[in-house]
Amino acid sequence: MIRRLLYLAIVTTSITANAQHNYTIQEGQAPQAGTSKSFTATITGVQMDFVESEWRDFLHQYQGKSGEPIKNGDVVVMETEEVIFPILDNEKVDIMAMFRPFLNQNGLDSVMLTIWIEREDTTHLNPLVDEQAGKKVKDWLLSFYAQIDRTAITTD
């Protein structure tokens, strides 16, 4: 357990320290999910409540049904079921999202969003097996960031 937490701390530090813009996406093995692969987006300059709300709205565009968020300290986990996923030819997937707030190196509010994508056959989308799908997920997450950016500009 300590080894997993240390791994997460190292990943978090490297993601935030190397971010040149206010948004980065990483892919890799999630420490707490065994062999499942995850995608992590680091979003800087926004509050966690805002990112959670935008994420729910973003997935509803794909007809996803979000459950109630589960809070554990500062970390929030949200599952959205039956998302019609354009990357996989509109296959329905379940997306588990974990939100974690932090202050970046400049003291700005930031959020680390990690997602796991479970296919209908209960396997997880794995960018190491399907590199093209992995790139498409990154692009899809960038479209989420574009939504956040547009909303943030119109509400400022």
Rank of each mutant, 00 (worst) to 15 (best):
T16Y: 15
R3H: 09
T154K: 13
F99S: 03
D109Y: 11
N126Q: 08
G34M: 03
L113G: 07
I15Y: 01
H21W: 09
G45Q: 06
T151R: 11
Q26A: 12
K138F: 04
A17E: 12
F85G: 04
M48F: 01
G73A: 07
D130Y: 03
V111K: 04
Q132K: 10
S14V: 05
G107Y: 08
D121L: 04
I25H: 02
I148F: 01
D109E: 12
Q147R: 15
L128A: 10
V137A: 03
L128N: 13
G34L: 04
F102A: 07
T123E: 08
D149M: 06
W140E: 01
D89C: 04
V83M: 02
E120F: 04
L6G: 03
F102V: 03
M48E: 13
R119V: 03
Y23Q: 08
L103D: 08
G67W: 02
M112A: 15
R3W: 06
A19P: 01
A152E: 13
K135L: 12
I148D: 03
F99R: 01
R150K: 15
T155L: 13
Q32F: 15
G64N: 01
M98F: 02
S38Y: 00
G28V: 07
N22A: 02
I15V: 13
T123F: 04
E82N: 15
P69A: 06
E52S: 05
S14P: 01
T154Q: 13
I87E: 04
T16H: 12
L103R: 07
P69G: 12
T13N: 13
T35F: 09
G64E: 00
I25Y: 04
D57K: 15
E68T: 05
T80Q: 03
I70G: 00
G73P: 06
E120V: 07
I115L: 02
T16A: 08
W55G: 03
P127L: 00
A146C: 04
I25E: 08
P31D: 06
M78A: 02
V111P: 04
Q26F: 12
W140Q: 01
I153K: 15
E68Q: 14
V46Y: 10
Q147N: 11
L113K: 08
G45T: 05
Q105E: 10
E68V: 05
L141P: 02
W140H: 12
D156V: 07
V76K: 03
I84Q: 09
T40R: 15
E79L: 06
P31Q: 08
V76L: 05
I95R: 01
M112L: 15
T80C: 06
Y62W: 09
N72K: 12
K135E: 12
K135S: 12
K135D: 11
L103W: 04
E68K: 13
K136F: 04
P127M: 00
G67S: 10
N126C: 01
N72E: 11
R4V: 08
M112S: 14
M112Y: 03
F58E: 02
T24I: 08
F85D: 00
V51E: 00
S14H: 11
A146M: 09
D156S: 15
